[in-house]
Design a binder for these strands. Structure first.
Lengths: 145, 145
DNA sequence: AGAATACCAAGCGAAATGGTTGGGATTAAA
DNA sequence: TTTAATCCCAACCATTTCGCTTGGTATTCT
């Protein structure tokens, strides 16, 4: 039950933008280079994050992307849900209108609900600011990238 | 981040076998019919569960499968890990020997660890017996299938 | 003998994944 | 005013994974 690269790269990119929050627009190329990702592919992910309101962009030379809100106001859950969809282990426990037959007597469904809820609790409780704080804990010599 | 049908069908099958624990071998056809799954496909999953020691089988007419242990001694985690592999959101937090560069300074990894651990806690704490108990809670008229 | 079962390996179409390609529009700087 | 940097967009593509199906063989009960 892995995340796809969408969620993983997306979080990396948002983290990288959080590091430079308040510095004006950061070009995608910088982010892709730092995190060692394909710029063209990352573009697709970032485009979705912008449309969903997590990022602002500035076009043209010296342009780039920046967080639309402070790092403490963006959670990992915000990012992952946009790029990966509901963090649900089965379709029957998504927000959507999917339904399986015999819903009431389905005991496995109760298991999927517990898994989903525990994931939600984790990802909704971690903000980009938390990640920035963690970064400084990690190593006094953490390079400012 | 959905489970595949392997994990979902596998848990359904194991639950069905738990319902009939102590009644001798249950043919795969019964299980497939009850849970509305392809018998041939289910066979592949069940075969793995047997090789990993969760099931015993009896060949020939009147044969079938049965749990190798009491329902209270088999967890959802046992089943899902066999059929889905590690319940880790990213390769870098599996039990395997995968490693990414810049491991020490990778803040996103700490996020994946928290997600993984919270999933583990849920699936390792639910046994098949818990599911049987839940079933009886659900409805006084729960049919014995 | 015949039917019911487990066991096994290979194949296979459809979908998802993880990109790449090729452009266009906008803007700052030279 | 040109040029380079950048965002923006849509289409395409190779590979892998998924969710089975097919076609058998071996075993055991009746």
């Amino acid at each position: 039950m892995r995340l796809s690269t969408r969620g993983r790269y997306g979080l990396k990119a948002m983290y990288q933008l959080a590091i430079h929050y308040g510095e004006g627009p950061i070009p995608l190329k910088n982010i892709a280079d730092k995190q060692n990702l394909s710029e063209n592919y990352l573009e697709q992910l970032v485009s979705v994050l912008r449309k969903e309101g997590l990022l602002n962009s500035v076009r043209g030379a010296q342009g780039g992307y920046m967080l639309s809100k402070a790092p403490m106001d963006i959670t990992v859950g915000d990012i992952l849900r946009i790029l990966e969809g509901d963090m649900a282990p089965a379709d029957c426990v998504t927000d959507g209108d999917f339904e399986c037959e015999n819903e009431e007597n389905c005991v496995t469904k109760t298991v999927w609900i517990k898994i989903r809820d525990s994931i939600d609790e984790v990802i909704d409780s971690i903000t980009l600011q938390d990640m920035l704080d963690k970064r400084q804990e990690n190593d006094e010599n953490t390079p400012v990238d």
